[in-house]
Write a protein that binds this DNA or RNA. Structure first.
Lengths: 234, 234
DNA sequence: GTCAAGAATATGTGATCACAAAAATATTGG
DNA sequence: CCAATATTTTTGTGATCACATATTCTTGAC
């Protein structure tokens, strides 16, 4: 403990966003998602503002927005931290992923065209490429892109913000957990999903999505000890 | 069209909240939930700030928070409006209510004690009282309180923010739709839910919750025409 | 050495201001 | 009288400031 805040806040994109606001939000969001900010350490508005070279205003708004997405906690004393989620909560987040994502996939299915299937195949290749490079972070981001692209085809968008919130809450913990794993077994559930889409088989699509999510979960055999380690180290 | 903004912004509670921030948020939230703000009209930060007698700062943050809960839309030109949801979206919101609330109820069941069942019975009486008084707004708020009390017993809280978001999105439209209805058929699904809880029958509880939500939906036979009316009047 | 109390510092909150962009209003040309 | 342009007003955004509170550091007593 008592180490310098050393997360890099990967500002890949310049400040040519519409709002600085939005840029700060996206920067912090991906930073949390990729586990660059350790759970438990306090985030200060002024500190982040200085690091990002903006005033405190955009940081305040970004942090509040992240708080209402459950990506960060605001404690009683108004300190902002990335929460360390309990194993129970971790499992519940996965349950909700299955519940919402199978639902979203089924509703999106009628809207997925042949052209879009091709794009999905490309996205899937990026997932495989990242994982075979051993780049877990890009891998899970690419995996999210694959899932997001499916669900987004539904013109009625209600689930997506909720699913994004689930991903965001899982992000930091998943990152820590995955970093302690030697082998990452990759079953190709995406292939099953693509076949289900091409055959317009909504039930098969649900099964493929569920299996894909469960495969992801099955990697975390050690969440309990990891939780214990993280909790005691803070 | 072109009428004065005449919603009352029911400030039942004084500014003895922790933050003015929070007070503004709650005030705007209930105002939207109860349909006091007409869908489509632009909300201005300065206008709300003046009406609530605070600076623009808390209003800005409250509006952004509401935006990330999908309670308001921020248009491309950065104007904030309460969205008018389409009939398709309305139905999807109800689907998600069923999906998430049956799930939440099932998970909460093991944690509901006898004492808490008594409290639920009291909450149910308040629902009945409001509806028999013909007070639809208090009725649906009381109904929410009943459901919320059940789901909140689960110590692992992940669904609740999502469910609250669904209620919030349905609020303004439901209010308009209900105001055009003469008779409101009230089946007592709450009674069924209470019995299921007492018998620890999770499947029966799921059915009761689902039936309760479906009953609520069945009232809106006329959503399509109401949507059309609202859309053309703006 | 340990712990508690007080001083010093850091931090979140709310207010105000300047500026650019968007709406609304006024003006001009047909 | 109407449409297109110009002007004025309104509005959101980002920055800065003052203040109250939380946190941290220091000091002193046991």
């Amino acid at each position: 403990m008592k180490e310098k805040k050393s997360y890099s806040l990967s500002l890949a994109n310049k400040k040519d966003f519409n709002n600085i606001n939005e840029w700060v939000y996206q920067t912090l969001r991906t930073s949390i998602m990729c586990g660059e900010i350790r759970p438990g350490v306090a985030l200060t508005i002024r500190g982040l503002a200085e690091k990002l070279d903006v005033s405190s205003m955009p940081v305040r708004e970004a942090l509040r927005r992240l708080a209402s997405e459950s990506a960060v906690d605001i404690t009683d004393s108004r300190r902002v931290i990335v929460p360390l989620i309990s194993p129970d909560k971790f499992k519940e987040l996965y349950s909700l992923r299955i519940l919402l994502e199978t639902h979203a996939a089924e509703l999106a299915l009628p809207y997925i065209s042949e052209k879009q299937v091709e794009h999905l195949i490309m996205l899937d290749k990026e997932v495989d490429a990242s994982y075979s490079d051993g780049d877990i972070v890009s891998g899970s981001l690419a995996n999210q892109a694959f899932h997001r692209y499916i669900y987004k085809q539904n013109p009625v968008q209600v689930c997506m913000p909720m699913i994004e919130s689930l991903w965001l809450q899982l992000g930091p913990f998943a990152r820590v957990a995955l970093s302690k794993i030697e082998k990452y077994y990759e079953y190709d559930r995406h292939q099953e999903a693509l076949e289900a889409i091409q055959q317009r088989d909504s039930f098969a699509l649900r099964r493929a999505i569920e299996a894909d999510i469960r495969d992801g979960l099955s990697v975390f055999k050690n969440i309990d000890e990891i939780y214990h380690d993280l909790k005691s180290s803070e």
